[in-house]
């Protein structure tokens, strides 16, 4: 069973949701900028799959995201978002699943610039409400 995380916009009086699921599948495609070798295996992998039907404020849909480990950080898998109070853009792995989820949700809401705090970061606009 997946979990829905609701995001409410006080300014717009509307809400969106982000769905986190934990699945076991063979990964046939890889994520842009993923630093590891391509997923060219027939082995099952277990990972978090993040999806949302919400749109960025330029009406572009979000791609599904895959998190296979707590060191797959939100910015190009290499850095945490600027939400990391006291240590923005930390390269440390998330300390637990909650930290990972909170950081990914924050990034959905606020977005980030291209190459924000490093190369290879694809722009993501803030969430549209």
């Amino acid at each position: 069973m997946a979990i829905n995380i609701s995001i409410y916009s006080n300014a717009n009086a509307s809400s969106n949701s982000v769905v986190f699921d934990f699945v076991g599948d063979v990964l046939a495609a890889n994520y842009d900028g993923y630093p590891y070798s391509p997923a060219n295996t027939s082995s099952v992998e277990y990972y978090f799959k993040i999806t949302t039907s919400a749109r960025q404020d330029n009406s572009v849909a979000y791609p599904a995201k895959v998190v296979r480990s707590l060191d797959e950080l939100v910015l190009n898998r290499q850095k945490q978002s600027r939400n990391s109070y006291g240590d923005p853009y930390s390269t440390n792995a998330y300390s637990d699943i909650k930290s990972m989820i909170v950081d990914y949700v924050w990034d959905y809401i606020n977005g980030h610039d291209a190459n924000e705090s490093g190369t290879g970061v694809t722009v993501q606009r803030p969430m549209r409400f």
């Binding site: 997946a2 979990i3 829905n4 769905v19």
Partner: peptide
């Protein structure tokens, strides 16, 4: 794997 969702 199967995917489903429920409210928080």
């Amino acid at each position: 794997s199967s995917s489903s969702s429920s409210s928080l």
